[in-house]
């Protein structure tokens, strides 16, 4: 707040000196706002790159090595897919730490009541970060990341949050995840074991859509995002359908079918 005196403003000079205080305050505010907008753009860009990185590792044939198979996470379908998912998650987390560092760096701009003042500026980057983080989390655990875990990722070593995590940004960030999962499922399908994976993602996204439906009255952007999720879900369903139809003509297990196809291609 401005450092005005407590006397009436009876003269022009008094007024001018008081307004000088306002000017500094407004300039300060605008400059900080600018810095946070730029920061948010940077966070968005880096988060987008992380998402591409995760996709890249998951579709990268070269890294297809031997793995532990099975487990809670994603990729239980094919040999090596599990290890690939873990590798993706671990590489992703490494990069995500960079983003977390960026948030730590602006922590001082967002202390006290300031965070809520600048939420609209912080929000776009924050949501994109949550999208990337939840994607890595899904690959690792096959689950939706919890609110508290996201908040923890935005806290210092002592567990003190850099700023409070708005529920809205948490949910909207997660909602964007379904689009990436659709892309992931569609690319997976053309790969060995990917058919099971697509089914898993289908169930997962269907549940996301159902869970989120309850909250649509509370956040105006969520309705729009739910529509996108519905479209993504339909795309995954169509893909899962196509698999079923193709394989239903034959009396063989999916694995055996995969084997035959693999043999033909590498004749």
């Amino acid at each position: 707040m401005s450092d005005t005196t407590n006397t009436n403003l009876g003269s022009r000079d008094a007024i001018l000196s008081v307004f000088e205080g306002f000017r500094d305050e407004l300039d300060d505010h605008n400059d900080r706002r600018e810095r946070l907008i730029k920061h948010s753009r940077d966070v968005t860009n880096l988060s987008k790159k992380i998402i591409f990185l995760l996709h890249r590792i998951m579709t990268d044939d070269a890294s297809e090595g031997s793995g532990d198979g099975g487990g809670v996470g994603v990729g239980g379908g094919g040999v090596g897919d599990r290890s690939r998912a873990l590798k993706a998650a671990s590489k992703g987390r490494e990069k995500l730490r960079e983003v977390q560092g960026m948030f730590a760096n602006v922590r001082h701009e967002l202390t006290g009541d300031r965070f809520w003042r600048y939420q609209r500026q912080v929000s776009p980057g924050l949501q994109e970060y949550i999208e990337a983080l939840s994607f890595a989390h899904y690959l690792e655990t096959g689950k939706l990341i919890g609110y508290e875990e996201v908040q923890k990722s935005l806290s210092d070593d002592q567990g003190a949050p850099y700023f409070p995590l708005p529920l809205e940004d948490y949910l909207l960030g997660l909602s964007d995840l379904t689009g990436e999962l659709m892309r992931y499922a569609i690319s997976a399908i053309s790969r060995r074991g990917g058919r099971t994976k697509a089914q898993d993602v289908c169930v997962f996204v269907r549940n996301c859509r159902a869970d989120f439906e309850v909250w649509t009255p509370y956040f105006k952007d969520l309705r729009k995002k739910q529509n996108v999720t519905s479209q993504s879900l339909e795309k995954i369903e169509d893909a899962a359908y196509a698999i079923m139809v193709r394989s239903s003509e034959y009396d063989l297990s999916p694995d055996m079918l995969d084997d035959i196809v693999a043999r033909t291609v590498s004749f």
Partner: peptide, 13 residues
Amino acid sequence: SRLAVNAVTMGNF
């Protein structure tokens, strides 16, 4: 129309 698709996926032709 969605159900038609998903029924097939579940093996209900």
